[in-house]
């Protein structure tokens, strides 16, 4: 059986931390948010361009650990082009996963998480949950900014 650490560093996570899907700055974003993890100084900026409550473009820049960078990369793959409602629903599901202490969610939910289900093992390490959620905090804030525009 894989050790807790091997469950933490799923291949999907290691791959995405190198792939860095969506890492770019957007011209004229409708919303953007800069977030810092105070324990390590890791930071990310998420920018969104929006048409009728849909994330037509999602870009991010940042520096951080494999968990935080992979989380941003998966977020971009799953949410660019999707509606606000879908983004909010997936974000809520991911936050629920991070509160689960390493237990899987209901099968239907776990399936809906797609590549994000690889982060299940992160929730066993309280110090790393913030890493996984950093980009998602930024996304939620960037979407709020875009709505106020």
């Amino acid at each position: 059986m894989a050790s807790a650490m091997e469950q933490l560093y799923q291949q999907v996570i290691l791959d995405h931390s190198r792939l860095r899907s969506g890492e770019r700055s957007l011209e004229h974003p409708h919303g953007e948010s800069f977030q810092v993890n105070p324990t390590c100084g890791d930071e990310c900026r998420v920018q969104v361009r929006v048409t009728e409550r849909r994330l037509t473009e999602l870009g991010w820049t940042g520096k951080g650990c494999s968990i935080s960078q992979a989380s941003l990369s998966v977020m971009h793959e799953m949410l660019e082009g999707e509606s606000f409602d879908d983004a909010e629903e997936l974000g809520e599901l991911f936050r629920e996963l991070m509160r689960s202490r390493g237990a899987e969610l209901e099968p239907a939910d776990q399936q809906q998480l797609e590549d994000l289900s690889a982060f299940t093992g992160v929730a066993k390490y309280p110090a790393r949950i913030k890493c996984a959620l950093l980009g998602w905090m930024a996304l939620r804030d960037a979407m709020l900014q875009a709505q106020h525009d």
């Binding site: 807790a4 951080g64 650990c65």
Partner: peptide, 12 residues
């Protein structure tokens, strides 16, 4: 390798 990742493997 980011320090958090270094520390995690050492912690293991």
């Amino acid at each position: 390798v980011h320090p958090h990742d270094v520390g995690q493997v050492l912690d293991d």
